[in-house]
Computed example of a mutant assay.
Amino acid sequence: MKKILQIFILLIASIGFAQQDVTFDKANKLYNQDKYQEAIDAYKSILDAGQESASLYYNLGNANYKLSNIGPSIYYYEKALELSPGDEDVKNNLAFAQNATIDAIDVIPEGFISRTINGFTNMLSFDGWAWISVICMLLFVILFILYYTAQISSRKRLFFISSWLILAVGLMGIVFGFRQYDLIQNNQYAIIFAQETIIKSEPNLRSEEVFELHEGTKVQVTETVNDWKKIKLADGKIGWIPAADLKEL
C-alpha cells in the first residue's frame, strides 16, 4: 500500500511538472508575440504553483523590461542571478535595466583582496559549491586508493599529488559555499518598487525626511519595525522606508 501511494505521489508530481512546462512554453509564445503582460501573467502562474528557475525569473525580467517596469525587471533579474550567479545574459540585461534607474548611488570601493574573494564566491551558487566539494572529496578518496595500490613510483607520485590538489579544491569549495550562504543569510536586499519614495529618519510619517529614492534602486534591509524597513545604501546612507514601497529579494 505504501509503495502504491509513493507511485501515486510521483505520478501527480510528474503531471504537475508537465503542466508547468506547457505553461512556460505558452508564456514564451506570448512574449514572442509582443504580448508582454499576458506573458508575465503566465510566468507568474508558474511561480504561484511553487516552481522557480533562473530561466523563469530571467524571462519575467525581460517581459517587465519591455513594458518599462524597471523595478520588477531588476527584481527578477536579481532573483535569476541568485539561482545562476555566473549567467552572463542575466548580468548584461540587469546592467541595462539598472542604467534606466534615476538614482545614482556611489558604491564604496572594495579592496583588491575583498573584491577577488567576492568574485570567486559569486561564481557559483551555494548548491554549486556544495556539488564541487562533494565531487572533489569522492575523487580524493579514489586517487588516494590508487596511490596506495599503484606499483610504479611515478604513478604513486602522480596520484599522491593529484589527490591533495583535489582535496584543496574541495576544501575551497566548502569555504566559498559557506561564505555564499552567509552572504545570503546576513545580507537581505530589496528593490524599490514605488516610482518615488521618501526615506525617513525614523519609522513614522512625522519624522524628518532624509532623502528620496526611485523605482529600481537596490537597497539592503537591516531592520523591520511594524510596516517600516530600515535600509542602507551602497554609499552608506541609512533611513526608514514604508515596507509597501519595496520588495525583498
Rank of each mutant, 00 (worst) to 15 (best):
S53I: 03
A54N: 09
S55I: 10
S55D: 13
S55V: 08
L56D: 04
L56E: 00
N59D: 05
G61L: 01
N62H: 03
A63G: 02
A63P: 00
N64P: 02
Y65F: 12
K66A: 10
L67W: 01
N69R: 05
I70H: 01
G71D: 03
P72N: 06
P72F: 02
P72Y: 04
S73E: 05
I74S: 01
I74G: 01
Y76S: 07
Y76F: 10
Y77D: 00
Y77G: 00
Y77I: 02
E78W: 06
K79G: 02
K79W: 01
A80F: 00
L81V: 01
E82F: 06
E82Y: 06
S84Y: 02
S84I: 01
S84F: 01
E88S: 13
D89M: 11
K91A: 12
N93W: 01
L94G: 06
A95G: 07
A95D: 11
A95M: 11
F96I: 13
A97N: 00
Q98I: 07
T101R: 08
T101Y: 03
T101A: 07
D103T: 09
D106K: 15
V107A: 15
V107R: 13
V107E: 15
I113R: 15
S114M: 15
R115T: 15
T116G: 09
I117L: 15
I117T: 13
N118L: 13
G119T: 08
G119I: 05
T121N: 12
T121C: 10
T121A: 11
M123T: 14
M123V: 14
M123W: 14
L124M: 11
L124R: 13
S125F: 05
S125T: 09
F126S: 15
D127T: 14
D127Q: 14
W129K: 04
A130M: 14
S133P: 00
S133G: 08
S133Y: 00
V134P: 01
V134R: 06
I135D: 01
M137W: 07
L138S: 10
F140S: 05
V141D: 13
I142N: 07
I142A: 12
I142Q: 08
L143W: 05
I145E: 10
L146W: 08
L146I: 04
Y147T: 09
Y148N: 13
I152K: 11
